[in-house]
Design a protein around this nucleic acid. Structure first.
Lengths: 255, 255
DNA sequence: CGGTCCATTGAAGGGGTTCAATTACCGTGG
DNA sequence: CCACGGTAATTGAACCCCTTCAATGGACCG
């Protein structure tokens, strides 16, 4: 699947697109590239609309003493700067984890938010909502899950996101992420990521070598990590757990 | 400052609003309330647009075994369900932490996203961007900060958000949050929250009693927590730290 | 072949959790 | 007015998940 086609594919899976809209997406041709390690989005710069079509990126945030936190991974098919306001507040640097290719998409943004192409606008809104859902999952991972759960959960999320752009074959996908980067994403130390990965391998839950990752028993992993795939147009999964013996969420001022 | 006025105040601080828009906001009158502990937004329900005008809420997520994570606090002046798509994906329950009051805002959403009132639309977009910035801060807190830093950082965020709706006097504000809820927000145990709070008090960094919180040395706290206030229309603060001795973010395939 | 990045392993230590109990704080009803 | 019940805050002690420090080995590359 060549460059811009991947984008049309992904977006039309989110919302039905008119034939002309698909044609518009597939006509994108202003392809750029950058080497691994480069900043796709600088800290301060205005963010021009674009779609990643090849390689991985990461939104990063730094603390003063050098601690790093990866806020999200940017995968092929993902958009950057595709929101109504040209100058979003939550601007954080995006770095290329691998060599990357993207297409400039000013025309797309203009078409979607100009009022024409409501189908496209809708698809972009859904894409943004999915991004936010991932961010919420990330919060839960970091706040309440163990190392094993965090990595499992993250792997499942990546599997699902990559599946949408057809980059997963039989639960396996290219995984060009350093263990240190993985640590920065999962809020762990690189050493402990290493040990947790080994544990996952020893338990035959994943296969991990040569920059490729395979989930061996995905159903088990989903249980282990309490993973639930986001559902477009509404979060279906009911919270399925027993409340256990925990106190009610809030004091008894209510019935 | 009575009910709906707070909303007009807050939004016009984000983007200049036309006089008629302000009037529209101030004319909101469909006030509802609910006791503490009630679900303002159920897990599955469609999310009707509204503004909280009194009390605190919290977006929560549960794991199967009962672990909880507070994704964000919802403060007076904050909107819920104010996005283009009526059925957002990232739907999570919102519970009332205190007794709450809100105004229904279907008319506002219609006006803003109907194409009239671009000023209002802009303000809502900025508000949404601020929300996202808070979420990103939350990720960094949970992923990379210590207990002391997490709480300090969270307090500073709350101070700034409450300042925007004029609920802070001399670095002090009502803080109706249980230590257990605070733990669920900060990704800590309630016990350790307690100890961390004591540490903050012993160091004369905060005053915390009778459901009121005061930041005693805010500048010091900001340094301690590496806190930087979000700037509307662009994230100004440069990362001010030394890179230390850490390896470059990515391998050396780049200049 | 030496350099660099990355994965891996060992050992020690600490920040945070868990369990358990006590104390303080309210609003309620006798 | 005080005992009562329930929630929230506090404290102690033991434990453990994860971090930190340090060192080794492997893979790729110029």
């Amino acid at each position: 699947m060549n460059g811009p086609v991947i984008i049309a594919r992904r977006l039309s899976a989110l919302a039905p697109l008119a034939a002309e809209t698909v044609a518009l997406l597939e006509s994108l041709s202003d392809i750029r590239q950058a080497p691994a390690g480069s900043e796709m989005v600088a800290d301060q710069a205005a963010l021009r609309p674009r779609f990643l079509i090849n390689g991985w990126g990461a939104r990063v945030r730094f603390l003063a003493d050098g601690r790093r936190q990866i806020l999200s991974f940017v995968l092929p098919g993902d958009g950057l700067g595709l929101c109504e306001r040209p100058n979003p507040i939550a601007l954080t640097p995006v770095v290329a984890i691998t060599p990357v290719q993207w297409v400039e998409a000013d025309r797309i943004a203009a078409a979607a938010f100009g009022g024409d192409n409501p189908d496209l606008e809708d698809a972009l809104h859904i894409a943004a909502a999915l991004d936010e859902a991932c961010l919420l999952d990330h919060v839960v991972r970091l706040g309440r899950q163990t190392a094993l759960e965090r990595l499992s959960h993250l792997f499942l999320e990546l599997r699902d996101r990559l599946t949408r752009v057809d980059l997963v074959q039989d639960q396996a996908f290219a995984f060009p992420v350093t263990q240190e980067q993985l640590a920065d994403a999962a809020g762990l130390s690189a050493v402990h990521v290493n040990r947790t990965l080994q544990s996952l391998r020893n338990d035959d839950l994943i296969e991990y070598q040569h920059g490729r990752l395979r989930l061996l028993r995905p159903a088990l992993l989903e249980t282990l990590a309490d993973y639930r795939a986001p559902m477009v147009s509404g979060w279906t999964s009911a919270r399925h757990g027993a409340d256990g013996h925990r106190a009610p969420f809030l004091s008894g001022h209510n019935p």
